[in-house]
Design a protein around this nucleic acid. Sequence first.
DNA 1: GGACGTGTTCCGCTAGCCGGACCATTTCGT
DNA 2: ACGAAATGGTCCGGCTAGCGGAACACGTCC
Lengths: 268, 268
Amino acid sequence: MEATAPNCLFQPDPREPHPAPDSNSVLGKVRRILEVFGLDDETLSLSELARRTGLAKASVHRLSQELVQWGLLERRNGEYRLGMRLFEIGQRVPRQRILRDLARPLMIDLVQATHETAHLAVADGLEVLYLDKVSGEHAQISRPSRVAGRMPLHCTATGKALLAFGSRHLLDEVMTAPLTRVTPRTTVAPGLLAQELQKAREQGFVAEFEQTRIGYMSVAIPLTGATGAVVAALSVTAPTTRAKVDRYVGLLNLVGRRMTKLLSAQEI
Amino acid sequence: MEATAPNCLFQPDPREPHPAPDSNSVLGKVRRILEVFGLDDETLSLSELARRTGLAKASVHRLSQELVQWGLLERRNGEYRLGMRLFEIGQRVPRQRILRDLARPLMIDLVQATHETAHLAVADGLEVLYLDKVSGEHAQISRPSRVAGRMPLHCTATGKALLAFGSRHLLDEVMTAPLTRVTPRTTVAPGLLAQELQKAREQGFVAEFEQTRIGYMSVAIPLTGATGAVVAALSVTAPTTRAKVDRYVGLLNLVGRRMTKLLSAQEI
DNA sequence: GGACGTGTTCCGCTAGCCGGACCATTTCGT
DNA sequence: ACGAAATGGTCCGGCTAGCGGAACACGTCC
C-alpha cells in the first residue's frame, strides 16, 4: 500500500507535484513524451523527442503515431507538437471548469473596479497553479504569469492564502522543504513565513510586496467550498507604485462573499 | 501505407473528428477511459467506467490507478473524474495558446464596442471547435456555447467562414456528408450552402440568422496566418433583436486586419 | 438471510510491446 | 563534390508487461 515512489533523490526540481517519473509501462512512456514539451517548446522532432525522453527511437515513433491518430499530438512538416484534443479534454476537467465559470464574472468586476490584474489559483503539490487570469487595461509589459503557470506557494499572495487557510498537512510539507528565494524580498525563513500566515488568519487576507516579482505586489483571499474547506484563492496584482491595498481588500472581500455563496451550491 | 482505419461502419456519430476508436493497445484503452467523460459527467465510478468503455474491470482499475498517479485522473471518495494536470497540459498546446493570446485583447475590444459576445474558433473534423469566448455585459441566459465546445461547420457563422475561405478538401467533405438541421432555419441544402459561401467570398464576411440558435445571429470573418491560409475564424454573436450587422462587419474587419498582422509574425 | 452492488487482489497465459539492427534520405562540414 | 552524420521510418524475434476471468472483502438493499 506504499504508493508515492521511493526515489526522493532528485536534483532538477525540489519535489515535483507528481512523483514517479520512471516506469517502463506504456503509460509511463506516454507520460514522458507528453511532458517533455515545455511551456515554450513549440515543436520537437522525433529524434529530439527520443533524446529527451530517453526512450528508444522506435518506441517513440510507434507511440507518437498512435498519439497523433488520437489527436493528443499533431504533426507539422515532420515535427511533433501538442495537439488540439489535449486542449479540448483539458477544458472538461470539472474542478477547473466550475471554479473558472463561477469566478470569471466576478474577476471581471474586480478588474473593472481596479484596472489591475486578477488571478484565480489552486494549490497543486508545493506550488500554486493559475486557473485563470483577467488583465486590466493598463498595458502590462512582459508579465510572465500565465494561465496554467506555476509558482511556489510560499512567495505568492494566492499561495500564502492557500497555506494560511488550507490544510495543516500542506503547510507542514512546505515548511519541511527549503523555501526557494524568487526575489530578494521573498520570505525564506520558516519562522517569518509562519508569522505572516498567522497575521493572514487574523486579518482574513494576505498581502505580498515584491516577493514574486520586483515592482509588483498582490493581495489575496481564500475561497471556501461547500464543505467549508479552502478550494482556491483569488488575488489582485498591481505595480507597487499604484498599490491601494485597502481598496483591494474591500473589493476582494465583497467578491469573496459572493463567491462563497456560489460555491456552497456546487460540489467541488 | 494505408493508415486511417478500415472500419467505416459506424452508427453513433456520422464521421467523428478522430477515427479508430477500437484498438486493444494500451493507448486505445486509455483513450476510451478519458473520452467517456462527457462534457458534464463530473464523476464516474469504477464500475460505470468499465461499463462505458467495455473494458474489463480489472484493466480499468489498473490503468485508472496509473492515470491518477500521473494526475490525468483524480479520485474523490471512490469516484473518478478528469484531473487538473490534463487542464495544465492542455493549456500548453501551441496552436490554441498562440491564437488565444493574440486574439484575446482584440476580442475584448470587440466586446466593449458591441456589448455582445465574441467567439474564436478553428475547424476540427467537420465541426468548429471554440478556442475562446468573451461575453458582453448584457446578461445572457443559458447560452450553451462554451470554450472547447463543438458545433457543425455548416450552421455557424465561424464554420461557414472557415468553409468559404478554407481548403477545398474540407468543403468537399462537408458537402458529401448529410447536413444536419440544428434549427428550422439551418441551411441543409448543399446548393444553398454553396451559394452562401460564394456570397461570403465576395463580401469577405459571413452572416447567419438563427441557424444555430433561435433568437440569435452571428457575423464572422476568417483569420489568415503567415502562409496566407485560413487558420481560424472570429465572430460576434447577438440577439436578433439587437443585430447591427454593418457595425459588426466594420469592427470585425478592423480587428481582422490587426490580427492578420500579428499572425503573419507567428508560426502557426 | 441471500442477492445484489461495489472496489480490490491474485495469477497463469499470451499477445502486444520492445528495441537493436537496418534502410532511405537529407543535411551538413571542409 | 563527397563522405559523415544527422534525420525519419521499418522490420522482426524475444520476452515481458499487460491481460482479464475468477475470487475476494466489503457495504446495501429488499
